[in-house]
Design a protein around this nucleic acid. Structure first.
Lengths: 202, 202
DNA sequence: TGACAACATGAGTCGCTACTCATCATATTC
DNA sequence: GAATATGATGAGTAGCGACTCATGTTGTCA
């Protein structure tokens, strides 16, 4: 679903790697990959040393590329937001908008159930965690999808982008921290989606 | 709403204080009160020393009464669950069950918006945080309320206790970590409640 | 191929926090 | 109003995690 250009990551081959020595570029990539895995498993509170171990580099190397743990998180989250952004733009351009909105919603919750990073990201939509503004980038495309779905009469008019984002944050948080299995995720989302439909409004 | 017996806490004047010297009993109460405030503000990751400072006792005194930080959390959470249990039992015995369910739901979210402890508690409903089983105590009374609401035709039949608890955890998490204001809490809950109503089921 | 800047290394520093314990204070009991 | 056990105190210990830096290594380029 949604093929990307050449390399694995996308977005023009990591501009931040431009002009690095080949070994440095390789290590940077390894660190990002390891950090993605480690933080996805244990959440953002996992230690930087574990990332270094997983990446097969010394702790100092991690801090050379990302002077702060926050910088590392930011780089990861930026990449993730870019991917989500791609996904939602594809959904926005094709097919039924309400379906697209619900598909995107479901997709995020599925990812949240597996990746703590996504939840920490979503949490940032309201508070100022190590990752704050990036999520705002998603507000606009989601809003566009929402408005189109409302014009099509498939989503109630009194549900604004704030409410939709709130529900998105809530279900992602719940799915992860509550350890919902696949069935529970589906059933819970079905209830939320029904609540978003027009006839539900009183 | 829902008056309690004599002293402030309830549940038989804290059995754990029985047989303590008067100064010890006073300090224990102070520590619990301070811990409640501190953890509500900063979450369970607040330091034990801050609790001691707020309580006006030495750090060693805190550890004399609660050998482990987890013990302190457990004591707090137990108290909180007891209070919620009282609340829901009152709601279960009087008036419309669906209204009661939604009132209780709203009440928990309101508390979550102010108290991190509640959210950490709710999170425990699915994972094994320092506080695991206590929440299960709430499952039964909530379920009773839910079943009655369903019999009255006010809540859809395919929403089980698992789904309701999941939604409860999700909205509490969202309300706290997303920093929802009062309006957003109300609007979001309205959508969730609509989704729980019968006509919403497809 | 030599010389140098860029990079990697990992033991060490610093700060924070849960928890301990020798010492001192006081409630309780007779 | 002692005697004593129970409780309070707070400097100290231990462990962990983010971050540093002196030293050694290697890609790069003339």
């Amino acid at each position: 679903m949604a093929e990307r250009t050449p390399s694995s990551a996308g977005r023009g081959a990591e501009p931040a790697s431009q002009g690095l020595r080949v070994d440095a570029r390789r290590n940077r990539a390894r660190i990002l990959e390891a950090a993605g895995a480690v933080f996805a498993e244990k959440g953002a509170s996992a230690s930087t040393e574990e990332v270094a171990r997983r990446a097969g580099v010394a702790i100092g190397t991690v801090f050379r590329h990302f002077p702060t743990k926050e910088d590392l998180l930011r780089a990861l989250v930026g990449d993730l937001v870019a991917r989500l952004d791609d996904e939602i733009r594809v959904l926005a351009d094709e097919g039924d908008p309400a379906t697209g909105l619900f598909v995107f919603f479901t997709s995020m919750v599925e990812q949240a159930a597996a990746k703590k990073t996504v939840v920490d990201l979503l949490a940032a939509a309201g508070v100022d965690l190590p990752v704050a503004k990036p999520v705002e980038a998603l507000r606009e495309p989601i809003d566009a999808l929402l408005v189109r779905a409302q014009r099509a009469g498939a989503v109630r008019d009194d549900a604004g982008i704030r409410e939709v984002l709130a529900l998105l944050v809530a279900t992602c948080q719940g799915a992860l921290r509550g350890g919902w299995d696949h069935d529970l995720r589906a059933a819970t989302l079905a209830i939320v989606f029904d609540g978003l439909r027009p006839q539900a409004g009183r």
